[in-house]
């Protein structure tokens, strides 16, 4: 069941993609358009692929948690427990005791991002190389940061902009807005640049092979001599290493921004005051 959505995605990709001979770099394909009263809503490849990723992660979780027992743990239960403990330890180290409940959210962000970037391995369009998808995630993180800054009331939130001197407030507003923008651009830029460079290298190697072997007759002249193996090295770096690293960095930055934005001391003082009043 985990593999089925990915297979559906490949089938859809093969069916919908217009065939072309030369290598080209393009954005997400638009599969179809929904007509809503306000405007037409394009359903793109990135949306469809991210839903496939969500479904396959869901079934992966079901598979991993199926039949767990306290007395007689199986191998996959050990793997699952290790992952959960690692994630909880990471959240506890970086965010502190108050944000303990953040572990599932952070794990979800990390897994979704990593699996989306790894979709390139099966030849599908990775949703993370579409700016809109990543911008949505960054917006979610921005809402979380602002929510935790609001915990001490709106006055405290507005006061935090006048820190350290009040006339620096515009700069503080800019840096506040720059947080989600830079997060989104970082993730999207890394994944997209990887795929662009891979395509450029593949095209270059094709040209080079044509120069080297083009004069040989028949099958030998068409033989993709240099394209074997060399792009795979780049793929290991850009698709596997960079994809997983960006997922980790996105989750890490989420943790750090939320934890540092939250005025924990003031919030505790406020709680104490409330308790003393009551």
């Amino acid at each position: 069941m985990t593999v089925l959505p990915i297979l559906c995605g490949i089938l859809l990709y093969v069916m919908m993609t217009p065939s072309s001979e030369d290598i080209e770099i393009s954005g997400a394909l638009i599969y179809f358009e929904l007509n809503t009263p306000i405007q037409t809503l394009p359903i793109t490849e990135s949306q469809v692929n991210s839903w496939f990723v969500i479904i396959s992660v869901f079934f992966l979780c079901l598979y991993l948690t199926h039949g767990i027992s306290a007395t007689d743990p199986t191998r996959r239960q050990h793997i699952l427990e290790m992952a959960v403990e690692k994630c909880e330890g990471l959240v506890l180290d970086n965010m502190g005791e108050y944000f303990k409940g953040f572990a599932p959210f952070i794990a979800a962000v990390m897994v979704l991002s990593a699996f989306s970037s790894l979709l390139t391995l099966v030849g599908l369009y990775p949703p993370t190389s579409d700016f809109n998808v990543v911008a949505g995630w960054a917006l979610l993180v921005f809402i979380l940061i602002t929510y935790y800054k609001f915990k001490c009331g709106p006055v405290h939130y507005l006061k935090s902009f006048g820190d350290p001197v009040p006339f620096l407030a515009p700069l503080n507003v800019i840096s506040e807005v720059a947080t989600p923008v830079s997060m989104a651009f970082r993730h999207y830029g890394n994944v997209l640049s990887g795929s662009v460079i891979s395509v450029l290298v593949a095209t270059g190697l094709q040209g080079l092979t044509h120069v080297l072997l083009g004069r040989l007759p028949g099958f030998l002249g068409e033989f993709p001599f240099l394209q074997i193996g060399i792009p795979a090295v780049l793929s290991v770096y850009f698709d596997i290493f960079s994809g997983c690293l960006q997922a980790f960095i996105f989750a890490m930055l989420t943790m750090l921004y939320v934890a540092t934005g939250f005025p924990e001391e003031d919030y505790k003082a406020k709680l104490k005051k409330k308790a003393a009043k009551a």
């Binding site: 830079s182 651009f185 970082r186 830029g189 890394n190 980790f248 890490m252 930055l253």
Partner: peptide
Amino acid sequence: MLMGCAVAETTGLY
């Protein structure tokens, strides 16, 4: 270091 590299990369990514 990886975190710092990611933050330092931002200007290049812009």
